[in-house]
Simulated assay, not measured.
Amino acid sequence: MSDLSDEVEALLEGTVPPGAWDSPFVGPESGFRNKAKLAVGGTKEAPTFGILDSGYRGVDLRDCGLYEPALARALPPLTAAVAGLGLVPFDVRARSGELKHLLVTASPDGELMVRFVLRSPGQLPRILRGLPLLREAVPQLRVASVNIQPDHKAVLEGEEEILLTEEDTLPMRLDEVTFRLRPRSFFQTNSVVAAGLYRQAGEWIGAVDPASVLDLYCGVGGFALTAALAPGRPERRIDGVEVAPQAVAGARASAADLGVAADFRVGDAGALDAVAAEMVVVNPPRRGIGAELAAAITAAAPHHVIYSSCNATSLARDLAHLPRHRVVRARLFDMFPQTRHHEVIVLLERR
């Protein structure tokens, strides 16, 4: 972890002063992943669930040590039941077959969301008929869906999602907030470290006590709902913007559960040309926020900005595009143990 910390601090040298760094947040080195993204290979009689090697042959990873305990316990009976459905694994070289991926997410309470990624909807009836067997194998199954990905390209899932269960959300309980995760919504893959990340943001928000918070790239509402519950003024205005409608629906449901006033709307956070709030929170994809959104934030001159990034290189570039703000606090979160990937959160204040 010290090597990673040194690497990230070096990437941000000149934009994050040395005295701003808090000690890194570290979770378990193994047993931390709440999600399994399993490429399906092999044959109908003997499918593999894991990855594909350089020759597109299936390599089984059902016993991977990175999965958190609830997920690790569920995968053997679940994948055995899926194998029993008789779905033909997709053959990348021949471009034939149906089942491309099996995506499984476990909540902190042990419930499961299972998504079948198929080349076409032709096998949907087979999966529907087998749903009682899947529930018998894994009673903790809460949400099941089929995603249709017809294209032959390196994209994990397609635009069409077909819900198979009455329940459409997986409750992800982190500290005080239960997030409502829908099939095509993003959620951090490390629940322990994600909870620590939101706690850190909540501490910073409570300390500066903004009257209004705008959460851009808000997803299922992680930072926005944390801001709503942070200490300070009870009338704090909370807004969130996210491009994914399912994530926005989940954020609204969580806000209703908590009884907090928060306005979440569907929109492209990166394309906003006007930003108005005492605090702006951004949690963008790896590419960062870009010069245009940085210019909009600079023009609005909020008192504080919280930037959570999974790419210190783009973070450094974006911080340089925010000349009216300076970093006063920073912390590294080891969201992806045993890798060079990372999550960094910084607090900026207006100069």
Rank of each mutant, 00 (worst) to 15 (best):
G31V: 11
P121M: 06
V305F: 00
D318A: 01
E45S: 15
H342Y: 05
G122V: 15
R62G: 05
S254G: 05
F186D: 05
A269I: 04
F25V: 15
L118H: 03
L315T: 04
R331A: 12
G219M: 04
S185T: 00
L12S: 07
H304K: 09
R73P: 05
P285I: 14
K153R: 15
M1T: 15
G19C: 11
P183T: 10
S308Y: 04
E68T: 07
R237Y: 05
A80G: 12
A224N: 05
P17Y: 05
S23M: 11
L61R: 15
P139E: 02
L12K: 00
N283F: 02
L322Q: 00
V213L: 01
S5T: 14
Q123A: 15
R351L: 14
L348Y: 06
D91G: 03
V59F: 01
G232W: 03
D334F: 01
S54R: 14
D209V: 00
E161V: 01
L61N: 11
L225I: 06
R180V: 00
A154T: 13
S30E: 15
G250L: 06
D22T: 12
R236C: 07
D151F: 05
E136R: 15
V155W: 08
A262S: 01
V282Q: 11
V220S: 07
G97I: 03
V8D: 04
R57I: 00
P337T: 08
P17C: 09
P150C: 08
V155N: 12
A296C: 10
L347V: 09
I162K: 13
V305P: 08
R236G: 11
Q149G: 06
V248K: 04
A224T: 02
D63V: 12
K35Y: 03
T169W: 07
P183F: 05
I162D: 09
G270L: 09
P28S: 10
L85M: 13
L103C: 03
P18L: 08
A294M: 09
D151T: 13
P28Y: 01
L229N: 06
A46F: 12
T15D: 10
L272H: 06
P150W: 07
L174N: 08
L75D: 02
G58Q: 08
A295D: 14
A227N: 05
L214Y: 01
R326S: 11
Q123Y: 07
I51V: 15
L61Q: 14
D168T: 12
R286I: 01
A276P: 09
A251E: 02
L102N: 01
A83S: 13
D318Y: 03
A154C: 06
L102V: 06
G290E: 04
Q140C: 08
V280K: 09
D334L: 06
P47I: 02
F179A: 00
